[in-house]
C-alpha cells in the first residue's frame, strides 16, 4: 500500500468522520431538549467514530502491514462503538426521562406527557 493511497484513504475516512462529529455538535444547538440531543448524538457514534476507526486501521495497515489481530481489533472496535454506545445512549435516555428533564414545549404529539389510551393512571387525582 503506497503512501498516496494510504494518505487519501485516511483522509477520506478521517475527514468524513470528523465532519460527522462536527455536524452532531452543531445539531446539539438546533434541537431544544435533552431527549432530542441524545437522538442527534447517534450519527457521531454510529458512523463518525467507526469512520475514524477505519482511518486508524488503514494507517495501521499502511505502517505495520496486514495482521489478523489488528483486523479483529478494528472490527470489534466498530461493533463495540455501534452496540455499546447505543446501549449507553438508551440508558442515558431512560434516566433522562426518569429524572424529569424538561421536554421541549412544542413537542407534538408529546407521548411522555400523558399515559397511552386505555391505561388507568393509578395515582392521577380524578381517578
Amino acid at each position: 500500500m503506497n503512501e498516496t493511497l494510504a494518505t487519501s484513504l485516511v483522509g477520506i475516512f478521517g475527514i468524513t468522520g470528523s465532519l460527522l462529529l462536527l455536524g452532531s455538535a452543531l445539531a446539539m444547538f438546533r434541537v431544544r431538549d435533552a431527549l432530542s440531543r441524545i437522538n442527534v448524538f447517534s450519527p457521531a457514534t454510529g458512523l463518525g467514530m467507526p469512520l475514524i476507526v477505519a482511518a486508524a486501521y488503514v494507517f495501521d495497515l499502511h505502517s505495520a502491514g496486514f495482521s489478523w489481530s489488528s483486523l479483529l481489533m478494528a472490527v470489534v472496535a466498530v461493533l463495540c462503538l455501534i452496540i455499546v454506545s447505543s446501549v449507553a445512549s438508551n440508558t442515558l435516555a431512560r434516566s433522562t426521562v426518569l429524572s424529569g428533564q424538561p421536554v421541549f414545549r412544542k413537542t407534538s404529539p408529546n407521548r411522555l406527557a400523558f399515559p397511552p389510551e386505555g391505561v388507568i393512571d393509578v395515582d392521577s387525582e380524578e381517578g
Partner: peptide, 19 residues
C-alpha cells in the same frame, strides 16, 4: 440549562477527544 443535555454533550466531547 438542563442536566440531561450536559450529559449528552459531554459524551460527544469525550468521543471527539478520542478522535
Amino acid at each position: 440549562r438542563d442536566q440531561g443535555s450536559r450529559a449528552v454533550v459531554s459524551d460527544l466531547i469525550y468521543f471527539s477527544a478520542i478522535a
